[in-house]
Design a protein around this nucleic acid. Structure first.
Length: 319
DNA sequence: TTGTGTTTTATTGCCTCC
DNA sequence: GGAGGCAATAAAACACAA
């Protein structure tokens, strides 16, 4: 890095000299210390902020000996191997404030901050660099938590819907049993009765059942993650469109296909298969491989939060 | 006091942009 | 090609339990 030249001599000293090397052993390296003195000036200038370390840490002794004891100790100070010195609380606060205003550092601003804080411009640049890295880490943690919460919400809603679906299926089966049991003595007239007299009450019953379940209508928009906006809109496309109770109604009336009322298992996937699918899919809830469970990509291939195509039908209540 | 984990300061190497 | 940014990393400083 080109900008790393300011401290390079000092850092080389760190490599050359073990920590706490007595001054006498470093005499031959005086010239190197001289050449690195500029880096010490940066740390020295921290003194102008006074002791803000709360009296803790080795910084204090270093700084006080330089501050209060004059040239003798100053020599000793300069013979100390290069050590990292923490910035004072005031310096950090100042930098934090500046970072809040703008997390990038233009050259003029860097110089200005360095002057105001009594630091090397490079120190200011390094501080901003590290601060940006910390900010990014925190941001990623936040994003992770947010996505985790979003996932938990969706999973809970999905489980609710599965329960609701089972409940409705049971209701259909029960009603079917009832109807079939009642109609058996008059098998000859069954078709006529089915298409006329019975169809409407059954449909009404279905609609009522679905309406009962409206309490479990999910708030899919709970996910506030900005980056999931497209996915969210997909969810709304499939679930917030007027498919909920009307969907049941339309599924029954628009198609005019009442056969499933009398044949609950007349679906592409049998109950057993469906149960297996459920077991298979849940562990892969986030990114299920649809082909692994026998599902192909939906035509529009929009994001449905990993809910398989069949179960997406739940969201539209077309069952 | 000491061992250990965390935070902060700084370096290095690579990449991108002008 | 130089300047600056970033990721990875080193190492000093610090916190804290045992």
């Amino acid at each position: 890095m080109a900008g790393g030249t300011v401290f390079s001599a000092a850092s080389n000293l760190t490599t050359l000299l073990p920590n706490q090397t007595p001054p006498s052993t470093s005499q031959p390296l005086d010239s190197l210390f001289q050449s690195s003195s500029s880096s010490f000036l940066g740390s020295r200038s921290i003194l102008s902020f006074g002791d803000v370390q709360g009296g803790k840490g080795c910084n204090e002794s270093l700084f006080l000996s330089y501050d209060e004891n004059g040239d003798e100790d100053m020599d000793e100070y300069f013979y100390q191997p290069e050590k990292k010195r923490r910035l004072s609380v005031e310096q950090v606060q100042f930098l934090e404030k500046s970072f809040d205003e703008e997390n990038k550092l233009e050259p003029e601003r860097k110089i200005r901050l360095a002057k105001e804080l009594g630091l090397q411009p490079r120190q200011v640049a390094i501080w901003f660099q590290n601060r940006r890295a910390r900010w990014k880490t925190k941001q990623m943690e936040k994003d992770y938590d947010s996505l985790q919460a979003c996932y938990n919400d969706l999973k809970a809603n999905y489980d609710d819907l599965l329960r609701e679906k089972d409940k409705l299926k049971a209701e259909v089966a029960r009603l079917t049993e009832k109807v079939l049991g009642r109609e058996k003595p008059e098998e000859g007239n069954f078709e006529q009765a089915e298409t006329k007299g019975l169809q409407e009450p059954l449909q009404k019953s279905m609609i009522d059942s679905a309406s009962e379940g409206e309490g479990s209508k999910v708030s899919i928009g709970a996910c506030k993650q900005e980056d999931t906006s497209s996915a969210k809109s997909d969810m709304f496309d499939s679930s917030e469109s007027p498919h909920y109770t009307d969907g049941v109604h339309s599924a029954l009336l628009e198609t005019g296909d009442s056969s499933y009322v009398f044949e609950p298992d007349h679906s592409d996937v049998s109950q057993d298969e469906e149960d297996n699918l459920r077991k298979t899919l849940l562990p892969h809830y986030i990114f299920p491989k649809l082909e692994d469970v026998g599902y192909s990509d939906p035509p529009h291939s929009s994001c449905h939060f990993g809910i398989p195509e069949e179960d997406q039908a739940i969201w539209s209540w077309s069952y």
